[in-house]
Design a protein around this nucleic acid. Structure first.
Length: 659
RNA sequence: GGACCCGUGGUGUAGCGGCCCAACAUGCCAGCCUGUCACGCUGGAGAUCGCCGGUUCGAAUCCGGUCGGGUCCGCCA
């Protein structure tokens, strides 16, 4: 039965608009001319009338005083029922909001009979008249709280068992295994629902900004050839070619570079990626990346685009959250390690590392001397106001430092009148110890933590302690978003077991022009690598974007000539044959005219988590897996059917323990 | 592969050798109630304490194993 279209429509749903400010790029303004502020149309909003259906006129968030006296139909879930006998209140809920329904036995006995039998989470359709609430009965906590729907007819669209956990309490703490088993019910609850909606807006904003800037959205296949990006591949056996397998992509890396060879110029994709590694709070076996690649670009072009895009998206999705610094700070890898002990530093607080090499030199303390002689570093951080730390807490931190690979942890706590506590005060003497603490920037009442170790290791351990202490002291403002670029990574790191150079990030990354001559071995034979090779000093055209101490993603300007790419692969230990076997496609493609190109991949799950204040990406994924890779709702993975294996030409080898 | 934490009515917790065939809150069921909005009041049902084994006169409680969940290291961009 068609109804007249109601006239009170067109309330915008989401009004997050994307206005992209031009941001300068790089420290050298000329080098940062960069690209392309977004001046496209405003972001889409959802007009209200599209939400009207034959089962409802409005959503449960809509009724207002202006509707008073109208006969309207709402549909939704029973959030709560308050039964006062002859009078029953039902809070009707959908994802937009809540409207109070009143059922009066004297007004509509049939509706009252239905309402008496209704329970939480029943799905109802209610027709009634919108009435203004009387003085003193309005509810300012509800957007619809000035009115209520006086039920004339209630239809039960669906009944509901008692749910395994409460839907209507956003603060209820529920075992995560139960939440995952009934994910569809968890998704019905406010907090998770809001996060999934926020993620949807994030992806929408990403798409709109890229389309408006001329990027082409291209889908790449999921059944591809295994590519060595470091992680284990998920493998899919082929029925048509028994014994052969596809791999699921760890990322669309080669495909997007081939799209550049194809002249696509600007590509992006919201790409599902797969890595068969152990799970963590920020790692799931399947995850989503914003993958993009651009042609005819140098490093500032890509960083510039990504920065303006990230700003636009952030302002569209989380407009209320302050961004720490714009343009984003740019650190070299070396700087990031030396100042923060991390290549993904959290810049929401200071507590920077200090080199104490000069201060401890000649102190006659064997640990320091031997480390310095061996070319290592003595580094420290000063934790303000923590001089009163207990012995037990120091032991705990020492344990942690050891777990992170340090030999030990030295501490100093200068007190009043030149006194000083600490683990090495006796060995150093009070005077020397005080001088070291002062060199670290510590004053009375502060705590200095010192690690002496091989270069990088000292910084890395302190970097972790810095994060740990900041966490304990609550130094990071949870509201602030601190984006930071880190670039000029080393091209390679030495793999002592395989005796070859390993790409630190991406095997396709190009090299900084100044370091082109370093793509060499000492022997001159690329196949005979040695840890002292010049290649170990080469820096890559590689850039990472970090946000609040999480790596959001990274990218690079790629080699686009066959010669240089092959040279880099050779340094990474590939023979000519294995190179052709694994990368033959892209090497050949580069013989047919490849434009200079580069790009980046950003973790959408991590981004969504950070923008919604979560520390775990499961909280922004609709259907995540447990830390052992199970889907508790669908009970996946499950044992293979014998017929399936047979068809694929596979047999299952029993584990030794199973006999 | 390793370390640590957790597992008690539907949910969240308490109990940590006998006082416990287990307590509290909430939820659930029933009755009463015409202005509630975390409605209220009265009554009731509901757990052999993840599972297996051991120690003990006696185990939710101690020990071993196992399964499941989480965090971290290794692994992973």
């Amino acid at each position: 039965m068609p109804r007249p279209r109601p006239p009170w429509v067109l309330v915008p749903r989401w009004t997050g608009s994307v206005a992209v400010a031009a941001t300068p790029h790089g420290r050298d303004p000329a080098a940062r001319r960069g690209p392309l502020p977004y001046h496209g149309p405003p972001m889409t909003t959802t007009p209200l009338d599209v939400l009207r259906t034959s089962l409802r006129d409005l959503t449960c968030a809509d009724p207002r005083l202006e509707h008073e006296g109208r006969i309207l139909t709402l549909s939704g879930w029973v959030d709560r029922r308050r039964d006062l006998g002859q009078l029953i209140f039902l809070d009707l809920r959908d994802r937009y909001g809540i409207t109070q329904v009143v059922v009066d036995a004297t007004e509509s006995p049939e509706a009252h009979a239905v309402a008496s039998a209704v329970r939480s989470e029943y799905v109802l359709r209610v027709e009634g008249r919108v009435a203004a609430r009387g003085e003193g009965t309005r509810n300012p906590k509800l957007a619809t709280g000035d009115v209520e729907l006086r039920a004339a007819t209630i239809t039960v669209l669906s009944s509901a068992r008692t749910t395994p956990f409460v839907i209507n309490d956003p603060d209820a703490e529920i075992d995560e295994a139960v939440r995952l088993t009934y994910r569809y019910l968890d998704l019905r609850r406010g907090p998770l629902q809001r996060r999934i909606l926020a993620r949807g807006r994030l992806v929408q904003a990403i798409r709109e900004v890229h389309h408006a800037a001329g990027f082409v959205e291209v889908e790449t296949p999921l059944l591809i050839k295994s590519t060595p990006e470091g992680a284990r591949d998920f493998v899919v056996p082929s029925r048509l070619q028994p014994g052969s397998v596809y791999a699921l992509p760890q990322s669309p890396q080669q495909l997007k570079q081939l799209l550049m060879v194809a002249g696509m110029d600007r590509y992006f994709q919201i790409a599902r990626c797969f890595r068969d590694e152990d799970l963590r709070g920020d790692r799931q076996p399947e995850f989503t990346q914003l993958d993009l690649e651009m042609s005819f670009v140098a490093e500032p072009d890509v960083m510039g685009w990504v920065e303006s895009m990230a700003l636009a998206v952030t302002r569209g999705v989380a407009p209320e959250r302050p961004i720490a610094q714009v343009p984003f700070p740019v650190l070299t890898y070396r700087e990031a390690i030396d100042r923060f002990g991390s290549d993904k530093p959290d810049l929401r607080y200071g507590m920077e590392l200090v080199d104490l090499g000069d201060a401890v030199a000649g102190a006659g303390f064997r640990v320091f001397d031997s480390v310095l002689e061996a070319g290592g570093r003595v580094m420290g951080i000063t934790v303000a106001g923590q001089g009163g730390i207990s012995r037990g807490q120091i032991d705990e931190l020492t344990e942690m430092a050891k777990r992170f690979g340090a030999g030990g942890l030295i501490w100093l706590a200068p007190g009043a009148d030149g006194s000083i506590r600490g683990s090495v005060v006796k060995a150093l003497g009070e005077e020397r110890a005080t001088a070291i603490a002062r060199a670290a920037g510590a004053g009375e009442g502060d705590l200095v933590l010192i690690v002496a170790d091989r270069d990088i290791h000292a910084q890395e351990v302190l970097g972790r302690l810095r994060v740990e202490m900041a966490g304990r002291l609550g130094l990071a403002d949870p509201n602030v978003l601190a984006y930071v670029w880190v670039h000029q990574f080393p091209m390679y790191q030495w793999d002592a077991d395989a005796r070859r150079w390993d790409a630190t990030h991406n095997p396709f990354s190009g090299v900084m022009p100044d370091d082109l001559g370093l793509l060499e071995t000492s022997s001159g034979d690329l196949a005979a690598a040695d840890p002292g090779d010049p290649a170990g000093r080469a820096r890559a055209l590689q850039y990472d974007l970090a946000l609040n101490g999480w790596e959001l993603g990274g990218g690079s300007i790629r080699f686009h000539t066959r010669e240089l790419l092959a040279r880099s692969f050779a340094l990474q230990g590939y023979s000519d044959e294995s190179m052709v076997e694994r990368f033959g496609g892209i090497l050949e493609a580069f013989e047919y005219g490849a434009p200079p190109h580069g790009g980046i991949a950003l973790g959408v799950d991590r981004w969504a988590a950070l923008l919604t204040d979560q520390t775990n990406i499961r909280e922004v994924m609709a259907f995540p897996k447990t830390s052992s890779g199970s889907d508790l709702m669908l009970a996946a993975p499950s044992p293979a059917e014998p017929g399936q294996l047979e068809e694929l030409g596979l047999t299952r080898a029993p584990r030794p323990a199973e006999g």
